[in-house]
Design a protein around this nucleic acid. Structure first.
Lengths: 139, 139
DNA sequence: AGTTCATATGTATGCCCATGCAATCTTCCT
DNA sequence: AGGAAGATTGCATGGGCATACATATGAACT
């Protein structure tokens, strides 16, 4: 096994563990999955708090069908609503509701706190060094 | 959103993408899932090429039940066999077969190649810098 | 120009797989 | 005997792939 493989294994272990920690906090304290939380975040930062499915999928790096189901979950919880595109009737906007925004805002501090804690706990705070700021952007 | 959150997002995007790439290569070219491949790797490096479920779970960072099912898959493919612990009849050893070792050895070069390629493609070769060598070990 | 057909795009749905949690079963230990 | 440890099993979840369906776009023909 190459040095590179070993390092990669270590990296993904850390990442998986931190992600699991984050997921648990969100799920137990706010009833949100990790992808759901991130979807709310992306929506909140989008113009008019809305995005089309594909755009959301691109941001989240998820399959289009996964996004479709995820949005379904969000919608069941009243955190978003679907809205048809007036110009392209194939398209569907997912729009953040007030409730969704509130849920997000209540979850955010916990998320940040949990991220800090998990990074520190696993001794990898320097992982997010400046240079990461410059890795290719989603959009 | 904090700088840290943003950096974390970028990191997990890269990691997820690279992992997906690796998974596809393994699956399509060798009929192995990512976890399965890694299980074979761990087994191959273990004394007598065998481990108990819990040990395997610890190495792979997987749930015990997930490991149980994964081993079931490996076993269906003839890549491993279960073997009862003589001393502790609660325990079960998963033992790498010759076929399993061959499959692993045929997959390894492709895995390494794919990892290199994916890291390069996503511009994060320096991600596995020396300091990662020193992040907490699995065992 | 207007109609028709082929193709592309956006989303939703069916099906399957891998994983986690909780409960269970067996075996071990005191 | 009773509790702890190791493994398996039932169930639920979230994700991907292939497909279906609706709409859009463009080209061809009249």
């Amino acid at each position: 096994m190459s040095r590179k493989s070993v390092s990669w294994l270590k990296l993904i272990h850390v990442v998986a563990t931190v992600e699991a920690d984050l997921g648990k906090v969100l799920q137990s304290d706010h009833g949100l999955g990790l992808s759901e939380y991130r979807a709310l975040e992306v929506l909140a930062r989008s113009p008019d708090s809305e995005l089309r499915m594909q755009e959301l999928a691109a941001h989240l790096r998820l399959n289009q069908s996964s996004v479709s189901r995820m949005v379904e979950r969000l919608e069941r919880g009243g955190l978003t609503v679907r809205d048809l595109c007036p110009d392209d009737k194939r398209g569907v906007y997912t729009v953040l509701t007030d409730k969704g925004r509130q849920r997000l805002e209540s979850a955010q501090p916990d998320y940040e706190k949990a991220l800090d804690a998990a990074l520190k706990e696993h001794g990898c705070e320097d992982l997010l060094a400046e240079r990461f700021i410059n890795v290719a952007q989603p959009a």
